[in-house]
Amino acid sequence: SPQLSSEIENLMSQGYSYQDIQKALVIAQNNIEMAKNILREFVSIS
């Protein structure tokens, strides 16, 4: 969805990798808010 694409772009601009974002979305069943929480908790931005 376009909204999801812009959310993904936004997260990538914050330093998350596309791969990590995709993984979080799978775990969160495409719930972007939950995916963000997963990324915040489990992915360290280098």
Rank of each mutant, 00 (worst) to 15 (best):
S1F: 08
S1C: 08
S1T: 05
S1V: 11
S1P: 02
S1I: 03
P2M: 05
P2S: 11
P2Q: 10
P2F: 07
P2L: 11
P2C: 10
Q3E: 06
Q3L: 10
Q3R: 14
Q3S: 14
L4F: 13
L4C: 03
L4S: 09
L4H: 06
L4W: 05
L4N: 07
L4V: 12
L4R: 08
S5F: 09
S5E: 05
S5T: 12
S5K: 13
S5C: 08
S5M: 13
S6N: 07
S6K: 13
S6Q: 12
S6I: 11
S6D: 07
S6H: 09
E7S: 10
E7G: 06
E7T: 10
E7L: 08
E7H: 09
I8G: 02
I8F: 08
I8Q: 02
I8P: 00
I8D: 00
I8L: 05
I8A: 08
I8R: 02
E9Y: 03
E9N: 09
E9W: 06
E9D: 12
E9R: 12
E9M: 14
E9F: 11
E9H: 11
N10E: 13
N10D: 13
N10R: 11
N10P: 03
N10C: 11
N10M: 07
L11N: 03
L11K: 01
L11Y: 00
L11R: 02
M12H: 06
M12Q: 14
M12E: 04
M12G: 02
M12L: 12
M12V: 11
M12T: 07
M12S: 06
S13G: 10
S13E: 11
S13K: 14
S13V: 13
Q14I: 13
Q14W: 03
Q14F: 13
Q14A: 10
Q14S: 11
Q14Y: 06
Q14H: 05
Q14V: 08
G15M: 02
G15N: 02
G15E: 02
G15A: 02
G15P: 02
G15K: 03
G15Q: 01
Y16D: 02
Y16Q: 00
Y16P: 03
Y16L: 02
Y16E: 01
S17T: 07
S17V: 11
S17K: 03
Y18C: 01
Y18R: 12
Y18N: 14
Y18W: 10
Q19T: 09
Q19V: 10
Q19F: 01
Q19K: 06
Q19S: 12
Q19M: 06
Q19L: 06
Q19C: 10
D20K: 05
D20Y: 01
D20A: 07
I21E: 01
I21R: 03
I21M: 00
I21N: 00
I21V: 07
I21P: 01
I21A: 07
Q22A: 02
Q22D: 12
Q22T: 15
Q22S: 05
Q22F: 05
K23W: 14
K23C: 05
K23P: 00
A24D: 00
A24F: 00
A24V: 05
A24H: 01
A24W: 00
A24R: 02
L25Y: 06
L25W: 00
L25V: 06
L25R: 14
L25M: 08
L25P: 01
L25S: 05
V26P: 01
V26G: 11
V26Q: 12
V26A: 11
V26Y: 09
V26M: 08
I27W: 07
I27Y: 09
I27P: 15
I27K: 15
I27S: 14
I27M: 15
I27F: 13
I27C: 06
I27Q: 15
I27E: 15
A28V: 00
A28R: 04
A28G: 14
A28S: 14
A28E: 02
A28L: 01
A28Y: 00
A28C: 05
A28P: 02
A28Q: 01
Q29N: 09
Q29V: 02
Q29K: 12
Q29L: 01
Q29W: 01
Q29P: 11
N30Y: 00
N30F: 06
N30M: 07
N30W: 04
N30K: 04
N30L: 01
N30I: 00
N31I: 01
N31C: 00
N31K: 14
N31H: 04
I32D: 06
I32Y: 03
I32H: 10
I32L: 13
I32A: 09
E33Q: 07
E33N: 08
E33V: 09
E33A: 11
E33L: 06
E33K: 10
M34E: 10
M34V: 12
A35H: 00
A35R: 03
A35G: 06
A35S: 09
A35W: 00
A35T: 10
A35V: 02
A35M: 05
K36W: 00
K36R: 11
K36G: 09
K36C: 00
N37A: 04
N37P: 09
N37D: 11
N37K: 13
N37Y: 08
N37W: 05
I38C: 13
I38G: 07
I38K: 13
I38Q: 15
I38S: 12
L39N: 09
L39M: 04
L39I: 04
L39T: 04
L39Q: 03
L39S: 04
L39K: 04
L39A: 01
L39W: 02
R40F: 06
R40L: 07
R40Q: 12
R40E: 12
R40C: 04
R40D: 14
E41M: 02
E41Q: 10
E41S: 08
E41N: 11
E41A: 05
E41H: 04
E41R: 11
F42L: 15
F42W: 15
F42V: 14
F42E: 15
F42R: 15
F42Q: 12
V43Q: 15
V43L: 11
V43K: 15
V43Y: 14
S44G: 13
S44K: 11
S44V: 09
S44P: 12
S44D: 15
S44Q: 10
S44N: 14
S44A: 12
S44W: 01
S44L: 11
I45C: 14
I45V: 13
I45H: 15
I45L: 09
I45P: 11
I45Y: 12
I45E: 15
I45S: 15
S46T: 12
S46C: 04
S46L: 07
S46A: 08
S46R: 13
S46P: 07
S46E: 11
S46H: 02
S46I: 00
